[in-house]
């Protein structure tokens, strides 16, 4: 293996992006809205295309606004369709995001075909190339700054509004009766997901975004029964997935005589492997421990972490 600073940057960018996704992802999972991440990450495409068509550049700021607006609209349309069309929430989501995604694809194909905003790049990303695009003379890749910035923003919002996010996710009716608008909290989370998605798009592609929004939080939920610990474990799992994913991409394929493979795909796969390990071996929710407890102890007793 030939590890260069290039590889280090790929891991850093992947980890920053994965952590930025995992934080709002925890609340998506807790609100039982996991698919909303999938929906929004697709539906931001027309927002990106329109922002590009209006400004004519791929500058980040208009792209963020376009994506944020598209993301909030996705949530809004979903709510309208399920309420007024008497359609189940999941179906409404499916209608909205496929339609918006299709519109985005058509717009990109028609208007921006000759520019570097192609659908393939959006889906799979090009994390291997991101270290080449550095900011000025600092040598720091732009993708690291963008994803790092988004991670910081998500972290600050969740730390400042931790109590409100917890309340809104656990009992939105109570939030409303106490004067914390559950609508506001909902759309704030949707905006965070949309902005995070766009930051990740350019560097790592949407597949890994969908994986990182959901898989690390789901893994964390198997390992702890405390919300702060869940956020921490999800973040660590996300970063670990990036490292293992990139290692996997350059180490594993040569074993079988292949060229190195795509890092984005391997990061998502690594997250899946970590989830499987947690599912099997978690001291509180793991199926092996549960089976052991069923055979060896009173079902009434709560298995303590570390007790197995």
């Amino acid at each position: 293996m030939n590890w260069t600073s290039f590889d280090t940057w790929i891991v850093v960018i992947g980890a920053l992006c994965a952590m930025a996704c995992a934080l709002p992802g925890c609340f998506l999972v807790l609100r039982k809205m996991s698919m909303m991440g999938d929906a929004i990450s697709h539906a931001v495409l027309p927002g990106l295309a329109i922002a590009f068509l209006i400004t004519g550049t791929r500058a980040s700021v208009p792209m963020f606004f376009g994506a944020a607006i598209a993301g909030v609209l996705t949530a809004l349309f979903t709510q309208w369709i399920s309420r007024f069309g008497n359609v189940d929430r999941g179906a409404a989501m499916g209608i909205v995001f496929t339609t918006l995604f299709a519109i985005g694809l058509i717009m990109i194909r028609q208007a921006a075909d000759n520019v570097d905003l192609d659908p393939g790049c959006v889906l799979y990303g090009a994390i291997e190339l991101t270290p080449l695009d550095t900011v000025g003379s600092t040598g720091i890749p732009r993708a690291a700054l963008v994803n790092g910035g988004v991670l910081l923003a998500n972290l600050v919002i969740i730390l400042v509004l931790f109590k409100e996010f917890k309340l809104g996710a656990f009992d939105s009716a109570l939030a409303d009766t106490l004067g914390f608008s559950s609508q506001f909290l909902h759309y704030l989370l949707m905006t965070m997901v949309a902005v995070t998605t766009v930051a990740a798009f350019e560097s790592v592609g949407s597949i890994i975004v969908i994986a990182m929004l959901i898989v690390p939080p789901a893994t964390a939920l198997l390992l702890t029964r405390k919300l702060p610990a869940m956020l921490l474990i999800a973040t660590v799992t996300a970063a670990l997935s990036a490292l293992l994913g990139h290692l996997g991409a350059i180490i594993v394929p040569p074993w079988f005589g292949f060229q190195t493979t795509t890092t984005s795909g391997m990061i998502a796969l690594a997250a899946g492997v970590l989830f499987t390990l947690a599912w099997l071996f978690s001291p509180i929710e793991g199926i092996l421990v549960k089976r052991w407890h069923r055979n060896h102890s009173e079902p009434e007793e709560v298995p303590e972490p570390g007790g197995a």
Partner: peptide, 30 residues
């Protein structure tokens, strides 16, 4: 307000004390 018990997800990762403390959130404000 005490809602019906089924109105929330009891698998949510919070402790009993956390849930009771939510009753103080309005006093605390944003």
């Amino acid at each position: 307000y005490v809602p019906q018990r089924e109105s929330v997800d009891w698998d949510f990762p919070v402790s009993a004390l956390d849930v009771v403390a939510m009753g103080a959130y309005r006093r605390l404000g944003w």
